[in-house]
Design a protein around this nucleic acid. Sequence first.
RNA 1: GGGCCUAUAGCUCAGUUGGUUAGAGUGCUCGCUUGACAUGCGAGAGGUCACAAGUUCGAGUCUUGUUAGGCCCACCA
Length: 882
Amino acid sequence: MPASDLSTRTRYEPAEVEPEIVERWLASGAYETPPADPTNPDEETYSIAIPPPNVTGVLHMGHALNGSIQDSLIRLNRMRGKRTKWILGTDHAGIATQTQVEKKLAREGRSREELGREAFITETQAWRKEYGGKIIEQFKRIGASCDYSDERFTMDDGYVLAVQKVFIELFEQGLIYRDHYMVNWDPGSGSAISDLEVEEKEGVEDALYSIAYPFADGDGEIIVATVRPETMFGDVAVAVHPHDERYAGAIGRHVELPLSGGRTIPVIADTYVKMDFGSGALKITPGHDPNDFDIGRRHKLPAPSAIGEDGRMTELAGEFAGLTTDEAKTAVVDALKASGALRSEEPYVHTVPFSQRSGSRIEPLISLQWFMNMDELARPAIDAVTEGRVKIHPPVQSRRYIDWLKEIRPWCVSRQLWWGHQLPVYYRGDTENPTETYVGIEPPQGDGWTRDPDVMDTWFSSGLWPFATLGWPENHDDLADFYPTSVLSTARDILHLWVARMVMLGLRFGGDVPFRDVYIHSVIQAPDGRRMSKSLGTGIDPLDVINGGPRPPVFKQGGDFPAYGADAVRFGLLAISTTQDVRFSEDKVQQGQQLANKLFNATRFVLLQLEELGLGDIDAEPRPRTDADRWILSRLERVARQTAESLDGFEFAKASLGLYDFVYGDLCDWFVELAKPRLRSGDEDTQRDLAATLLYAIDKTLRIAHPVIPFVTEELWSHLPGDDRGLLVSASWPETDASAIDDAAEQRIKELINAVTVTRNWRETMNVKPSAILPARLREPLDDERVASLSALARLEFTDEPGERAVTLTTAGINIDLLPSEFIDLEAADKKKAAERERIETEIGRLNGKLSNAKFVERAPAAVVQVERDKLAALEEQLAAL
RNA sequence: GGGCCUAUAGCUCAGUUGGUUAGAGUGCUCGCUUGACAUGCGAGAGGUCACAAGUUCGAGUCUUGUUAGGCCCACCA
């Protein structure tokens, strides 16, 4: 049932139509993965696992772009008849979600600690039920044809089992282990976070302090520089470069640590130290600096903690214990000043790590965490890409992927959160130093066991996404059919964080690569080139563009967006999508809107014409009678192939802009215009065949355009005659038909179009009234079809009578003499003719020069030389005809 | 510090292995209620392809350098 009325509407109004079409698609079951065809063992499948949005998330431009990309691929392959599955779901997003819920509790005057773990998780589940579905509804609105009947969540029952199983197996294989290590401690969330969640802030102003450490034997001192004097209580050595002559005699001696009751530390030699920085002596604090931690391990030094996980000084700091780091810094500096150990204090600007999540300054701390050794997992993941079993597009991204994996470090997989997959780990005795550790799905027997309170890094569960969503480890049917998935489409920033880990874990547990192709799409920037961000006012909500919401401040123009509709947004995003980052372009969205409107009106025109001719129920089929018919069928065949090729090759801009060019440049501007006179010819056979061909052209165009602009095509499809048409979403992609390609017809219509354009151009520049019908004569005989078309489209009236000519329009293949008439200013025409003659002569001169260059004629390929000769001949002919 | 990418019309971008007079959309100017569409139709103006060398018969395209912008990695206490 159509949602709009073609006979009365002259504009396509997406906002009125699209929501209804969403319902139509959902109700039809077309999105759902069809059951396997038991009679066809060779049935092709196609699957994409959506990058699961955070449950906390709302749709942003990145989702809209990636949704459009994936949906165009899914719709194309569904139409091709493949058994298609677009796996949908959301990610529990540990820190992000926990933070949101804690904020909500804080607003209500409650806290996580007050509630306790169990109640907090119940609260979070409830929160998820209320808000977590929002983004799914938004995906429906943009036309994403995911299988909504099979929505997954990274914490649903089957998924939990998969996560635990992977953890346990890797533990049993010795790849997961517990260790002391330097982690990025985020005091804000009270958790360790990964390197990838750390944000480096540049230009932070601190002070660089120079402190004197006297030698223990009383003879001299060493000056060290630090921005963090409060960490000095964790110092275990002073390091110098082994070749630094200034300290040659110092190595092996001891210095006394100020403010530490006479504690002494050794001077060691390490090549890490830069001789030319500061004093050339570096204090080593393994407990609070990642580099120092490495140096400490090299020299087998202890790594005491001067700062605790609460962000306060430990007992090691003596009188400063209990102070926050900021308080301690002030106090320590004062004390050093008082004792005379502080030698200088200079302003110092440097880069400081902050937590992306909580915004707190990262405190590097030694902590007991769970780690995954990645070395053994990384090698196969590198091979998968170098051997082409996983292809990354654009290929330049493969290098980044491989470089990262080659230098991979152990992955800290534990997080001190409540919301997430709790580690299946139990301890007996002191949890820091247990007498027994048990790892397993079922809790261990006996008394005295305590479960590790930590949960896994969110990316641990995301890493299993492609196979855990397909039923691994229990159900293998979907896994067999849809794993490996066909394509993964995602943004560049999670190539390491997510993509690489999926490949590693997919190979290990899924038994194969998780996907054949990885497409890295553009990041969409604000129109001014800045990053899209709500806080900067540069964020653009795709739904505002679709439904006509307010323009954010980043636009020069204020006011609301027109309700462009989902098709327009999809088209616009695909049209700007490249392998580079791109700026959001409202113009391109508008272009998409115009395309939808154009298709609407072209279809409207054809259907109303057929109605008028009493051919309302004619079948759509190609019945070519003329070159124009053969031309459009040939063009349709080409655009069908080109669209499929472009989508298959991840060239989404080429696909969408190619559609636009075809609909405007071939179908509407020329074919429909060429058809008009014949529709009114009164010849019933002509009309009948043309009607069928027109309808066929519309039918095929709608199919081809559907993956990019599904809504308007579906709507128009419902207006086409035929009761058993069904929905376009379930219709078939046009089969390749080599016989439709007709180079000769394409050439002849190209000449016609060229002749019409040249004539129009001449008329405009000569100020000839558009309504004037000019008397004309053809220089050379031309087929009746093109004579009629030329006459109609260029407004000429041809005669065979001999006589004076006013001017000759020369084009490739067709030369037209315009005869003198009241519309033509002969003097102006002569001027124009002279200018044209000059242009051609210049060009001929240029070509003659080129062709008389012996080197060119000798060394250029014969074909290239011939092209130039042909060109010259054509120009000379044109000059003669003028 | 290391690596990568980009620079083409006022704006946003195409431009396949080097080979017609470098294209599109949009904006701008002019004309047109042309029997689907003014979200339309027709036409026009607008480019030293960032700069400088080089390779070549021929460079927007290849090489080197310079400049500007962006991204990634590692970061000096």
